[in-house]
Simulated scan of single mutants.
Amino acid sequence: MLSQIEKQIFKSWIGYAVEPRIAKFTGRQIRTTGPRIAVVGNCQAFGVAYSMKLMDPSATVHHYSTIGQSRFADLDLLVRTLQTYDYVFSHDFLSGHLRGPGDSAELRSRLPKVTRLPAITFAAFHPDLIYISDPAQPLHGFIFGPLGPYHSAIAVFAFRAGLTLDETRAMFNENVFTTLGYLNMWDEAASGFLATVQKDCGVDLSTDLMKWARKGVFMYSLVHPMGFVLFDVARRMWEKVGLTPPATDFSYYQIHDLARAEIFPVYPPIAKHFGVQGGYLFKLQNHHLANDVGDFLTLPQYLAACFKTYEKEGAARLGNKRVDGWLADEETKNLLISLARENLRKGLTPVS
C-alpha cells in the first residue's frame, strides 16, 4: 500500500504535467490559477494546508504527510516534486520517513525555497501527558495504550509503585497536581514555545498566543492544536514569505481535523486554574466518523485499560524520564503514595 506522501507525489505530477494539457485540448477551464503551495509535515500539516487553501481558493495547495514510512519515495523524488511549487513549507522530520536517507534539514539544503514551518507544542493544559518510547522502534516508536501514544505520568508512576487502581484514581486530585507543579506550567510552556518558534523559524507568535488563550483551551493534547491555531500559523507563514493573507472568517469554514485523533482531557483542578471547564473524559481515536461516532473512556475505565497494557508490557518497558525521577527520589515517591492513600481514605476518587 502506498503512503500518503507517495499518493500525493503521484497526484501532484498528474495535476502539474497532465491535466493542463488535457484542459488545453478539451477547452476545460482550470480554476486553480493561483500559486502552487506545498505543505510538508506532521499531523498539523493538513490544518495548515487547509487554511492556506481557504486564504486563496485559486491556489493549488497540496499536503505531504511525513507520518509513517514510504515504500519507494526517496528524498530525490520529493525534491524533484517540490521544485514544481512556488512555495514550500515544511515541518522538521527525521530521516527514515522516506526511503533511504534524508531529513528535513537536507531537504532545506537542497531546496532553498523551503520555509521552515513551526510545530505547535504546548504543555500547560495537559501537564500529565507523557510518551513511553519503544526502544525496538527507533523512528517515533512508542508503546501504545488505550489512548494511543498518550499516557498519564501519574498512572505510569502508580503502576510502577505498586498502587491499586483505587489508589491510582485517588491521585487525580488537586493536592497531587499541586505537589507535581501541574498548576504552574503556563509561564514555562509559553516562554519555551515562543522561544523555540522564534529560534527555529524566525516567527513571533506572542500576540497569537495571547489571542488563543483568550478563547480558552486551544490544544487537544501536547501536540494537537485546534483548527484556529493552525489558521493563524498559516497566516504568519504567508507573511513570512511575502504573501498578503486576506481577511477570512475562518470560524465559518474551520475543520477540526485533529479532533478525530485521541483527545486528552483537561483535569478539573487545572481547568479551574485557567477559568475553563474540565473533566476526566478520554476520547479514543476515530478517523472514520462517517462509519462510527467513536467512543470515550471515563477515568476508571481509562486507568483500568492502562493497567492492562502495563501488565502486558511489564514495568521494565515503561521507562519515562519524569516518572523515573519521581520513583528514584524517595521523598517524592513516598509523598505521592501517602497522598494517594490519604485521598482514598477521604473518598476522593473522581470518576468524570
Rank of each mutant, 00 (worst) to 15 (best):
residue 313 E to T: 15
residue 322 R to I: 13
residue 334 N to W: 01
residue 305 A to Q: 02
residue 322 R to T: 15
residue 332 T to W: 00
residue 300 P to T: 04
residue 311 E to T: 14
residue 316 A to R: 12
residue 314 G to W: 05
residue 325 G to R: 02
residue 327 L to F: 00
residue 299 L to S: 03
residue 325 G to H: 02
residue 303 L to I: 15
residue 300 P to E: 05
residue 307 F to S: 06
residue 309 T to A: 15
residue 300 P to C: 06
residue 321 K to I: 12
residue 337 I to S: 04
residue 299 L to M: 01
residue 321 K to L: 13
residue 326 W to M: 03
residue 328 A to K: 10
residue 304 A to W: 03
residue 324 D to H: 05
residue 320 N to E: 13
residue 318 L to I: 13
residue 309 T to E: 08
residue 332 T to M: 10
residue 298 T to P: 06
residue 324 D to P: 14
residue 326 W to G: 04
residue 329 D to H: 03
residue 329 D to N: 14
residue 313 E to K: 14
residue 320 N to S: 08
residue 315 A to R: 06
residue 323 V to M: 01
residue 296 F to T: 14
residue 333 K to F: 07
residue 314 G to C: 02
residue 306 C to H: 07
residue 317 R to L: 08
residue 324 D to C: 08
residue 307 F to A: 03
residue 297 L to Y: 02
residue 298 T to K: 06
residue 302 Y to D: 11
residue 320 N to C: 13
residue 313 E to H: 14
residue 324 D to F: 06
residue 301 Q to H: 08
residue 301 Q to A: 10
residue 334 N to Q: 07
residue 296 F to N: 14
residue 322 R to Q: 12
residue 324 D to T: 11
residue 310 Y to K: 00
residue 303 L to G: 09
residue 303 L to Y: 09
residue 336 L to V: 01
residue 317 R to D: 07
residue 317 R to Y: 08
residue 333 K to W: 01
residue 318 L to E: 09
residue 323 V to Q: 00
residue 324 D to R: 07
residue 324 D to K: 12
residue 301 Q to Y: 05
residue 329 D to S: 11
residue 313 E to M: 15
residue 334 N to G: 00
residue 332 T to S: 04
residue 301 Q to D: 10
residue 320 N to M: 11
residue 317 R to P: 10
residue 337 I to G: 03
residue 320 N to Q: 15
residue 311 E to F: 03
residue 299 L to N: 02
residue 307 F to C: 10
residue 335 L to Y: 02
residue 315 A to H: 02
residue 314 G to A: 06
residue 297 L to S: 07
residue 322 R to A: 10
residue 299 L to T: 06
residue 312 K to G: 11
residue 323 V to T: 02
residue 302 Y to I: 07
residue 317 R to V: 04
residue 327 L to I: 05
residue 312 K to E: 12
residue 325 G to T: 02
residue 316 A to D: 09
residue 330 E to C: 07
residue 336 L to Y: 00
residue 325 G to A: 11
residue 311 E to P: 07
residue 321 K to F: 06
residue 334 N to I: 02
residue 325 G to F: 01
residue 298 T to R: 02
residue 311 E to A: 10
residue 312 K to Q: 15
residue 328 A to P: 08
residue 304 A to R: 14
residue 310 Y to T: 05
residue 330 E to H: 08
residue 325 G to P: 05
residue 317 R to M: 05
residue 297 L to H: 01
residue 301 Q to M: 11
residue 327 L to H: 00
residue 315 A to L: 00
residue 312 K to F: 12
residue 297 L to E: 06
residue 313 E to A: 15
residue 305 A to P: 00
residue 301 Q to S: 08
residue 302 Y to N: 14
residue 318 L to C: 05
residue 329 D to C: 09
residue 300 P to R: 02
residue 335 L to M: 14
residue 298 T to C: 10
residue 326 W to F: 01
residue 315 A to S: 14
residue 316 A to G: 07
residue 333 K to C: 09
residue 325 G to S: 07
residue 299 L to W: 02
residue 334 N to Y: 00
residue 297 L to T: 01
residue 308 K to Y: 09
residue 326 W to C: 05
residue 308 K to I: 12
residue 331 E to Y: 13
residue 336 L to D: 06
residue 330 E to I: 05
residue 310 Y to I: 01
residue 335 L to W: 08
residue 307 F to N: 01
residue 330 E to A: 12
residue 312 K to P: 13
residue 330 E to V: 10
residue 327 L to C: 01
residue 323 V to D: 00
residue 310 Y to Q: 04
residue 325 G to N: 01
residue 335 L to V: 14
residue 335 L to K: 15
residue 302 Y to Q: 13
residue 333 K to S: 04
residue 297 L to P: 04
residue 303 L to T: 09
residue 316 A to L: 03
residue 306 C to F: 09
